[in-house]
Amino acid sequence: MCQACDSFLDRLFAKGVLHETGVDGLYGRGQAFEAVIEGMDRLITRLAEGDHAEVIRFPPGMNRALFEKSGYMKNFPQLAGTVHSFAGSEKDHLALLDNIHNGGDWTGGQGATDIVLTPAACYPLYPIVARRGQLAPEGGLFDIQSYCFRHEPSKDPARMQMFRMREFVRIGLPEQAASFRESWLERARGFAETLELPHHIDVANDPFFGRAGRMMASSQREQALKFELLVPIESTENPTACQSFNYHQDHFGELWGIKTASGETAHTACVGFGMERLALALFKHHGIDTNGWPTSVRAALSL
């Protein structure tokens, strides 16, 4: 096989690092890939060891009613995915089978379930925190992880439709949220250096939808609410965001009614690790075969 003319994704498939499913952005993960993900998970846990964050892991779906309240559809309708299921009669079932057999549209009769695919790991967290009532004076700190979905099919292996996001979320006073984000910007540099990844940190914006979105994005940038740790994967001109550092001000606190110990609306901040993107960055920069990776990187990931 010609290595030079194959894309990075082709080479990942050829070596069984990822497995093709026939849908762009939806892949099976091989043993080497998962070993890297597990190694990074442990490394991230060690980074945050002294913080005593409360660990919560989420399934890839969230409560549809809470998703609706979250406002995600205002800003990112193009990325959302909903779970639908068959709820018809036997007659409807026969029509459905008929449509599948004839290559017709069989999904029209599916009804929305109470579940939507989680768009970001922290979305299901806020309502849980809100339900507990007023925060303690030290605020809240959470270590969360979820498979997330974003509908943006692409041949770029770093733009998957389903991927894992590990996050730390800080909920409390504005200065608690701000110092949390500052400390993670520092840690992230050390993390990327340990993994020997070329990187830089830059101000960023979320992919808000439409003209209203253009304004939201510009406002987010002007206020420097989002930073990303960028690593070149598919291109040097457009490096891939592998981590993000977000300050939501009181957006989620207000939306979910989360109050600090003194009764003020809580501010929130989160740091997100795109686990698949970080793993792909490692495969890109250190090679498809993890046996050939630098000893220090292998040691950091306990490979």
Partner: peptide
């Protein structure tokens, strides 16, 4: 601010170009 922007467009029958779609 986004809601205000949309209402201004409708009321004054204008469309803000991209360069004006910012916080300032």
């Amino acid at each position: 601010a986004v809601q205000l922007m949309l209402a201004l467009e409708e009321t004054f029958d204008v469309e803000f170009p991209d360069r004006m779609l910012n916080r300032r």
